[in-house]
């Protein structure tokens, strides 16, 4: 056995190296904790969160034309669209729309299949509820979007 490794072993060099790593990490700049309700996390532009339905900003009408492509694309089959045909213009329009968020896995296939860019997965992520009932979103809630939650202490 050569001398250098033996000396390194006796003087605990390996252990001291490890100790120095953990000691250096105590520097306040190294902290990565986010204090969640006070500090909001960073959310990417393409984030897939709570679904929303877009409305035409000028008229307030839904962009949905009731084609049902999203319902077909959904792997969990949690979107139900009913549509009717306008007797005058012979155009399809959506009559009701429900989206069951409790089973959603946020794969984004609905938003990719939508021809009018109506349904989209927005950047909202605070979807926790105390019961499953409120998780089936209807058209009104989908268009309005989530109500921001106030956290009080």
């Amino acid at each position: 056995m050569s001398v250098a490794p033996l000396l390194r072993k006796i003087f605990l060099v390996d252990l001291i190296k490890g100790l120095s790593v953990t000691f250096r990490s105590q520097h306040p700049d190294e902290l990565i904790t986010e204090q969640y309700p006070l500090e909001r996390p960073w959310i990417a532009e393409r984030y897939r969160g709570q679904p929303r339905m877009a409305v035409n900003p000028d008229t307030g009408e839904s962009l949905c034309n009731g084609c049902g492509a999203c319902a077909l694309a959904c792997p969990e089959k949690l979107i139900t669209v009913t549509s009717d045909r306008d007797p005058v213009t012979k155009k399809k329009y959506m009559t009701s729309y429900t989206y069951d968020v409790s089973r959603c896995m946020f794969c984004g296939l609905c938003q990719e299949s939508c021809p009018t860019d109506c349904i989209e997965l927005s950047q909202d992520y605070e979807m926790a509820l105390y019961s499953r009932e409120g998780m089936t979103l209807d058209r009104v809630r989908l268009e309005k979007g989530p109500e921001p939650t106030e956290y009080a202490r």
């Binding site: 990565i32 960073w42 959310i43 990417a44 532009e45 393409r46 984030y47 897939r48 896995m105 946020f106 794969c107 984004g108 997965l121």
Partner: peptide, 21 residues
């Protein structure tokens, strides 16, 4: 901590962190 950086790149790229699709 390092994985978090990777997940941030994933989130920016495809909108999800863990189950990316």
């Amino acid at each position: 901590r390092e994985r978090e950086e990777i997940l941030k790149i994933f989130e920016k790229y495809c909108g999800a962190r863990l189950t990316t699709h």
